[in-house]
């Protein structure tokens, strides 16, 4: 980069291009693939859809939004989603980091343990939901059998609204805690060793090390993991579809399952598009909040 010294403007241009060059591939791919679908969704959300062609028909203004926002079922689905998120996310984050610390203990088999740990994520959602359903079933489930051995009655996991939500959180936690473990393991592995050695020499106990060194260093990773898991969890519907189909009643009908059913089962693509836009707005606001929160945390710890 010595040529640039003679022509400062060109060098600056090259520098700017070099900086932006890092963002360009991601931006271009996303713009190319997402621009039309998002515009289409927005357009449909303000139109009547012509089901025969799947093209926007007559412009109807805010009608679809009015229908959606006055639909008590939409709000109910949002509420169900909120309940699920409030329980599932913290549980997965906490479990994930604790387990990552456990499986990071140095011994010969830890590579295998880490590799095995990712399996729950890989099992196709239809199979994962079905296996859990099979194990929890009050009639032929393994858990029912084991409970019966110690004289306890069967739990109607999928017939009781509260238990069904519990089952969804349980299955989702089983499925996605490994993600947190995976990222947290990498986070722990990237920590600079000299800091810990210094702390050890200073005679700090592990509790102090944890709170003063490990966690502060991990804050960006924890925050990123949270945001990614949050964005993934908002969209959860396959597990609910496979395990409860949103039931009993509508107790586990999370928002994306609701939209999916309204679109592909109810053939209401225009209203679904409006719901998608509303969900996008809500997700945007909350994600913005989380991003700000994680910035504050990062700033405080560094």
């Amino acid at each position: 980069m010595t040529i640039g010294m003679k022509r400062p403007t060109r060098a600056r241009l090259a520098d700017t291009a070099g900086r932006w060059g890092f963002l360009t591939p991601a931006f271009l791919i996303l713009a190319a693939v997402l621009a039309y679908p998002i515009l289409y969704t927005i357009e449909i959300s303000f139109s009547e859809i012509d089901i025969a062609t799947f093209m926007p028909g007559e412009f109807v203004g805010w009608d679809n939004y009015e229908t959606v926002l006055t639909d008590e079922r939409f709000w109910y689905a949002l509420r169900v989603t909120l309940i699920y998120l409030v329980f599932a996310l913290p549980l997965q984050l906490l479990l994930g980091f604790v387990i990552a610390w456990l499986v990071n203990a140095e011994w010969r088999g830890r590579g295998v343990v880490r590799a095995l740990f990712i399996i729950p994520m890989v099992v196709a959602p239809v199979v994962a939901g079905g296996i859990w359903k099979m194990m929890l079933d009050p009639l032929w489930g393994l858990t029912t059998y084991l409970l019966g051995l110690v004289g306890l009655p069967a739990l109607d996991w999928f017939g009781d609204p509260v238990l069904a939500m519990g089952a969804i959180v349980l299955i989702d936690t089983w499925r996605w805690t490994p993600f947190v473990v995976l990222i947290a393991t990498a986070g722990l592995l990237s920590l600079p060793r000299d800091v810990f050695e210094a702390a050890e020499i200073d005679g700090a106990n592990w509790w102090t090390t944890l709170w003063r060194i490990t966690i502060p260093l991990l804050v960006p990773v924890i925050a990123a993991t949270f945001v990614v898991r949050w964005l993934g969890a908002v969209k959860m519907f396959d597990i609910a579809l496979a395990a409860t189909a949103g039931g009993p009643g509508r107790a586990t009908n999370v928002i994306n399952l609701f939209i999916y059913q309204e679109a592909f089962r109810g053939m209401k693509f225009a209203e679904s598009a409006a719901m998608c836009v509303v969900v996008l707005v809500i997700t945007t606001l909350l994600t913005g909040l989380f991003l700000r929160g994680s910035r504050v945390l990062e700033a405080r710890f560094q």
Binding site: R19, W20, F22, L23, A26, F27, L30, V33, L34, Y36, P37, I38, Y40, T41, F54, V227, L231, V234, K235, I255, N256, I259, Y260, A263, F264, F269, S272, A273, M275, C276, V277, V279, L280, T283, T284, T287, G288, L291
Partner: peptide, 30 residues
């Protein structure tokens, strides 16, 4: 890298993840 506007673009990229996948499937097919 310090980039004016990069944070915004980054946020937009991240938020594109907030679009429910159901919204994308049919237009992508088209």
């Amino acid at each position: 890298i310090r980039l004016r506007g990069a944070a915004t673009i980054g946020a937009v990229i991240l938020l594109s993840r907030g679009v429910p996948p159901i919204a994308l499937a049919v237009p992508m097919f088209i």
